[in-house]
């Protein structure tokens, strides 16, 4: 079931498009914003609300990189693995992240503090390598800086 707040926000998106179905990406974003990820139940609730099939919602949900179909931690760490970062130190940075967090790519820490994910170009190639934690961008990142950065996220 969608909450009253979620429905209200989705209704606003529906008002901007010619037919309900066109707001499915916005609906997924809204529900993920509230719940952290998109469960099977969320897929079904969105489908019922937009009057389309759950399969149709899931086909969209699974297409986009930043719609999470599995639970994630309280903070999501994205490391840019694209070319400029690759040239400027992505590999040692990735190794340091995995070792310090004791996580491999795609994993969430047992205390649910962090999820670690690889990500495509973050668009700050002149300040590579880069990571993004939640909505915060960090550039020119060196492994020695990681401990201080992590402290901001509990």
């Amino acid at each position: 079931m969608l909450t009253a707040t979620e429905k209200k926000e989705i209704d606003h998106e529906i008002s901007l498009v010619p037919f309900k179905k066109a707001s499915v990406i916005e609906a997924l974003k809204i529900v993920q914003q509230h719940r952290g990820w998109i469960s099977d139940e969320s897929v079904e609730a969105i489908a019922a609300y937009l009057e389309i099939s759950p399969a149709e919602v899931d086909s969209v949900a699974t297409f986009y990189n930043l719609i999470f179909r599995q639970p994630v931690g309280r903070h999501v760490i994205l490391i840019c693995d694209s070319i400029s970062c690759y040239v400027m130190g992505y590999r040692p940075l990735r190794k340091a992240l995995e070792e310090k967090l004791q996580l491999r790519m795609g994993e969430t820490s047992p205390d649910e503090r962090f999820t670690l994910l690889p990500n495509v170009c973050l668009g700050c190639c002149d300040r590579a390598p880069a990571i993004m934690i939640d909505k915060d961008l960090y550039t020119d990142v060196e492994p020695a800086m990681l401990d201080d950065i992590f402290k901001k996220y509990t």
């Binding site: 498009v17 990406i25 974003k29 969209v60 297409f63 986009y64 495509v120």
Partner: peptide, 27 residues
């Protein structure tokens, strides 16, 4: 005028795929 923020897929930069994304479809 409206702002639409994507959810991450390189294909969205191709103009017809972008239109599909704006219509709420796979890009």
């Amino acid at each position: 005028m409206h702002l639409h923020t994507g959810v991450g897929r390189y294909m969205c930069g191709e103009e017809t795929a972008l239109l599909n994304a704006l219509e709420g479809k796979r890009a």
